[in-house]
């Protein structure tokens, strides 16, 4: 899941500047799960903005709506009838959602209310941690299901650096050393042999930006010839 966090209110206020008619647009998918931009968070943000405007006597209308998903075009169509009423749309989606909104309503100023942080999992209520860098070349089969590309700040592929510290990482002692986790897990699985091979330098081509993907079923070039 994509994990995001809301920008500070001051920053959002500064972006809104003198906009009078504001529509806060929530997203009901990842950012709703990570409690950053779902219906509830839209309500809280709208309430905070209203209180600010009310206290300062600023003329402002703050409406709210939450879409099922902002990163799929189909869900944006329902907004088309309303956008003209607003000066700005303040999106609480991830960066992908904000951009699709801007693409769909290209005459409208679209502002981001969140900082998109990472692809991760929930550690517990209200706590998430990064698990995948979308490197496009998964090697979890070699590392006991622990990703060194994501979980080691130096993305080392051949073992720990000298900064490994009682199972913790020197860059942030709160984090586990990915390579200690990998070693311990492979040890438990009886597969330490997986660590024998020297991993070659990583191929970063799949990470070239902007990435694009066409599902094989939707590829237009002719299918490979039958023999």
């Amino acid at each position: 899941m994509i994990v995001a966090e809301r920008k500070p209110l001051d920053e959002i206020e500064a972006m809104l500047a003198s906009a009078e008619r504001v529509l806060v647009v929530g997203c009901g998918t990842c950012v709703a799960v990570c409690m950053a931009g779902g219906e509830k968070e839209v309500e809280l943000l709208a309430s905070e903005l209203r209180m600010r405007a009310q206290a300062s006597g600023q003329r402002r209308r703050i409406d709210q709506v939450t879409l099922t998903r902002q990163c799929d075009r189909e869900y944006l169509d329902a907004l088309a009838a309303y956008v003209e009423e607003y000066d700005v749309l303040l999106s609480t989606a991830c960066g992908a959602g904000v951009q699709l909104l801007a693409e769909r309503f290209d005459g409208k100023l679209i502002l981001p209310a969140l900082n998109t942080r990472f692809i991760g999992t929930a550690e517990g209520p209200g706590v998430w941690s990064q698990r995948c860098l979308a490197c496009g070349q998964c090697l979890l089969h070699l590392t006991g299901g622990v990703c060194p590309v994501t979980r080691c700040p130096k993305n080392l592929l051949n073992g720990p650096c000298g900064g490994t510290n009682h199972g913790k990482c020197e860059v942030n002692p709160e984090n586990d050393c990915a390579w200690t986790l990998i070693y311990r897990r492979l040890e438990k699985l009886g597969r330490l042999d997986l660590l024998d091979a020297i991993q070659p330098p990583k191929d970063y081509r799949p990470m070239t930006k902007p990435a694009r993907l066409v599902h094989p079923a939707f590829q237009t070039e002719s299918a490979p010839p039958t023999k």
């Binding site: 073992g159 000298g162 070693y183 330490l192």
Partner: peptide
């Protein structure tokens, strides 16, 4: 190499 790393085993692998 870090002779006093803890744990030492992954260090020896490297």
């Amino acid at each position: 190499v870090t002779p006093e790393a803890d744990p030492l085993e992954p260090q020896l692998v490297k």
